[in-house]
Design a protein around this nucleic acid. Structure first.
Lengths: 196, 196
DNA sequence: TACAGTTCCTAGATATATTAGGCAAACGCT
DNA sequence: AGCGTTTGCCTAATATATCTAGGAACTGTA
């Protein structure tokens, strides 16, 4: 019998594809083994267990997402950069729902995380996107959190069918980005106006 | 042997508590049966299957969340209403992580959904919260989506440990709400300013 | 008290994760 | 080519999960 030629990388990649096809929470070692034409137990030579497999998919997806965002933001500033960041984020999430879910559903263990700089990169990309808005800490952190939240919330709700209204989602998204831009460009002073 | 006195409601309620304790995706029929001191199969007289159990928990949580929001928003308008809505939302999600996840992870089947008006109520509450901002369609829908996204994204990232920065999360949240208020109060015109 | 409906049980089929231990293919070296 | 070592994949077995079928026991009611 010829061997299947498994490696941790190939297994992870197949798991990511499976996740996009059937949903991240539905990936199983069994299904993965079937797709390779091997027995379940064979995968355990390459991946410690299901948990680690999920973490690897999460890390893979986080790297891919950061790559897309980096490419989109490069050479842009201000609203342009923010919109490019947002669209790269949303496009990836909609094109790879399983992978995207992985980035949120799993916080990789320190061991798996050690080999990657993706977390730092993401923070740097967020700061780069916001640079032209001239925010200083702690406003920078606060604004970054608001944007990440809005992006994540939007694509999650959209992917889960949370937007049932007939209003076109794409246009709605663009208008939301306009709204976020207004918030960033007029980021409120420390003590919010007590009159409103 | 005295009977356990199970009903669909009691089972659902116990499942919701279990979800808050161990995470929504970790609730099992077996664990639930153990907590009642009955056999697994006994639960199937009250709930069709695991899927339906999850849908029931999701519906229960959605009702509870809507109740909290309704109480918070009552008698408030403008930014006051928006902040009250947001805090009720976040407080519920942090206090009941399993239930909150259920509201997002499951879209109840038409059958389960039929007996409830929670979806309509939620839309109405959102519109009520936004009333004082004087938005007209489609801006109303767009702004509502942005807010829901930001709220959902924020509490999800917060609950998953996505905010590792030392910055105080509670204050950061309040500042994000200030930012959203700015966006709503200055909601951009149809054609966004092409200069930015 | 007998009937009817419901609650809960036993037993079993199927799927999954995971471990232990073994055989044989591939690799490195002489 | 021949040798040993590593490693890939296997068989076998265990534990836990969902879910079904069919039966027994409890409940309320006529």
């Amino acid at each position: 019998m010829a061997r299947a030629g498994l490696t941790a990388e190939r297994v992870t990649r197949a798991a990511a594809e499976l996740a996009d096809a059937v949903g991240f929470e539905n990936i199983t070692v069994s299904a993965l083994a079937r797709s390779f034409g091997v027995k379940d137990a064979s995968l355990y030579s390459h991946v410690r267990n299901l948990q680690e497999l999920r973490e690897r998919v999460a890390l893979l997806a986080a790297e891919e997402l950061a790559d897309r965002i980096a490419a989109a933001v490069a050479g842009r500033a201000g609203k342009d950069a923010m919109v490019a960041f947002a669209n790269a984020y949303r496009d990836y999430a909609l094109a790879h729902p399983g992978r995207y879910t992985a980035t949120q559903a799993v916080q990789p263990s320190p061991a798996v995380l050690a080999g990657s700089t993706v977390h730092v990169r993401t923070v740097e990309l967020t700061h780069a996107m916001l640079r032209a808005y001239d925010l200083v800490e702690p406003d920078l952190t606060d604004a970054g959190r608001l944007l990440r939240s809005a992006f994540h919330g939007y694509v999650t709700l959209e992917a889960n069918g949370g937007f049932r209204h007939t209003r076109d989602v794409r246009r709605s998204w663009e208008r939301s980005l306009d709204g976020l831009h207004v918030a960033l460009a007029n980021w409120p002073a420390k003590d919010p106006c007590p009159l409103h």
